[in-house]
Write a protein that binds this DNA or RNA. Structure first.
Lengths: 143, 143
DNA sequence: TCATATAAAGATATTAATATCCTTTTATCC
DNA sequence: GGATAAAAGGATATTAATATCTTTATATGA
């Protein structure tokens, strides 16, 4: 469903939200990739993408690391759109460039409702809420 | 969401169902790839996969081609499972090997309901029903 | 029986996703 | 100011998905 990069990105963002609820210190690559069990160098690239897209803030140098601007509410859909693009949320299931209600692919109307509720859910699930669940040990970043 | 191969496969199967409702003649690769607007050689490979998986029947030789065993009801989920595997329907959204209710990833419970209804829909949508919609010009195989 | 049209099978090519490695920039601490 | 530790950036490697091409097997019909 999501690309591997996107899977990591969702874990990264929710992990930082989780950690930041406990301490305001910047969080470094090492801590992140250890916590979510992801390859370090690859994780660094995804962190770059998230930072460029302004979903994440970063500081260089000795006490550097990553942190979230707490004023901004970030939802899972923001992360998905940044890493995988909006195709999975908006695009045609069968690859039409323009799959509207007027020129629908064979699955369009069949799956319309289900896709919409999935999209709504991703649009309404923010990372702080997810992070709270981790704190209550109701969800995990790695197996 | 689905791989390109799977997109083609869904079109292939629904197209054959659609054509077969009109004529019992075997349908050849050329007609299929033309109708669904897919690369011919690649389409041939997918047809092979579908045939091996017994979702589709084939006949070689001069009047050869592909056809459906009308006694068997095939749903979209059968096609998806054959081409992309069951991961997209059953597997963890964030790549856990074992993502159950007891050891859930950070998205598991959040998206559980939405995934389930998507899966149900794919499990209950059969290709003949889809084909009928095409016949009524309510859905298309290509743009 | 032989030419032809078809699917099956195998080999290869191309492109995109995943992943790593090395160098550069930047901030901190001594 | 120099050593150090961090992120950023660029280059490369590996693997998987997409796609094509060529050969083989099989059935038909003249």
């Amino acid at each position: 469903m999501f690309s591997k990069s996107c899977e990591y990105a969702i874990k990264i963002m929710t992990f930082i939200a989780f950690r930041q609820a406990k301490s305001k210190e910047h969080i470094g690559l090492d801590a992140i990739s250890e916590a979510i069990d992801s390859p370090k160098a690859f994780t660094a690239k995804i962190l770059q993408q998230l930072t460029k897209a302004d979903l994440l803030k970063s500081v260089r140098g000795r006490t550097g690391g990553f942190y979230l601007d707490q004023n901004r509410v970030i939802v899972i859909a923001d992360i998905v759109r940044t890493i995988d693009g909006s195709k999975i949320l908006e695009g045609c299931l069968l690859g039409f460039g323009e799959c509207q209600d007027e020129n629908p692919c064979v699955l369009h109307h069949q799956i319309k409702k289900e896709r919409k509720s999935l999209k709504n859910k991703l649009n309404s699930t923010d990372i702080y809420t997810v992070a709270k669940r981790v704190n209550r040990k109701k969800a995990y970043f790695k197996e």
